[in-house]
Design a protein around this nucleic acid. Structure first.
Lengths: 208, 208
DNA sequence: CCTTGTGAAGTTATTCACAGCA
DNA sequence: TGCTGTGAATAACTTCACAAGG
């Protein structure tokens, strides 16, 4: 167990966690059942879990409760993580209004915007601060991750300032490549690119 | 050239295209310059491009115009692709209002919602149709891709109906695993999972 | 029987390294 | 010299297949 963990394993673990939450029947769940639930192969699931120790029972499977706890611990879902939305436009506002992250341990605590017309007021009970104050506010509110929803032309500059403020994780919705220090974890959610990938796969008939 | 193209190559091609659009100086661009622009290795870039034929010039690099045209052709950006938003809530409305997809060849033509209070009217000039009409409307408007922004509990059912209506590409924002026929291309944009991945990498210090 | 966990094999993707061209 | 394009080597990841446990 626990050599080097493949990157994709982490993504899958979140999906196992999700899948486990969906079905809640029986005390034990086998890798085969998990496979049907998540679409990944049973082999893969066992391998992924084995990176973190052995907690399955031969002939039975994994204790649902135990597996759940394990995944929570691995993924750190037990700890609260505060998140801020940077850019209170259409998409940013939608994020602020969406409450679905809480159950996974993430709390959107506030927004930031550079536009005077948006700062000061609240959206879904979350205050929109002036972006210039991000350093102080994010420190005070212990913000660990920023959701970046500003327009593409300013995204690079804004991202750099986010990093300067001490935030080390960014979920980037702007359709550009931010290049930031490798100490910063950036995850791109570029919808244009996603549409292009889908379109390409449709044209090509997918990978069979 | 052109054996089997790695899946990830497609994702990268869209990023090369994007990177190319960002810098527009000089007639030629080398794989090394592209590397700095996109963050992928020059080797990787050359390999990826070589799957689609040889159009670089030794000692100079790739013609910016030529490469751009090639990428457009490979990715099919030249063709219009019509998209619908299914679920006109906060996120769906934000999508309808966002105009940034057009330049990449995607046009959001309409929305669908099952809620009487939302159907009939328009958002950002795009009509919201009753979801029950999706089959006819999507056929008439030649919709190829659906952006799924309905709440998680109904997402499975809605997705199935989308597929029945003949749409074969789905960008899924609902935080659940849709399992659909393999002929359907699904791309998950689960923000909860993305946050978890970022949080995990922050904790672990990333992959160096 | 049914399971897990894991070496070994197989597959896929990336990097190395260099011949050949401008 | 500076660059591409690509075999060969390497690394990363997944699947096979089976011993061992229940």
């Amino acid at each position: 167990m626990l050599g080097r963990i493949p990157k994709r394993t982490i993504t899958r673990l979140t999906l196992y966690y999700r899948g486990l939450a969906e079905s809640r029947r029986g005390d034990f769940v086998s890798s085969n059942e998990m496979s049907k639930l998540t679409g990944f192969s049973a082999d893969q699931i066992r391998r992924d879990l084995s990176y973190f120790g052995q907690f399955g029972i031969s002939g039975r499977g994994y204790s649902v409760v135990g597996l759940r706890k394990k995944l929570i611990k691995i993924l750190g879902v037990d700890k609260q993580c505060n998140v801020a939305v940077v850019g209170a436009g259409n998409l940013g506002s939608a994020m602020l209004k969406y409450g679905g992250f809480e159950e996974h341990g993430f709390r959107i605590v506030c927004g930031f915007d550079a536009n005077q017309g948006k700062t000061g007021r609240s959206i879904a009970g979350k205050r929109i601060f002036d972006f210039s104050r991000i350093k102080k506010v994010s420190r005070r509110l212990k913000i660990k991750i920023a959701i970046l929803t500003v327009p593409a032309p300013v995204a690079s500059v804004v991202a750099r300032k986010i990093v300067e403020s001490g935030i080390k994780g960014i979920m980037n919705f702007a359709p550009i490549n931010l290049h930031l220090p490798t100490t910063v974890q950036v995850l791109n959610m570029d919808m244009g690119i996603s549409l292009q990938r889908i379109a390409f796969l449709l044209k090509k008939g997918g990978y069979r």
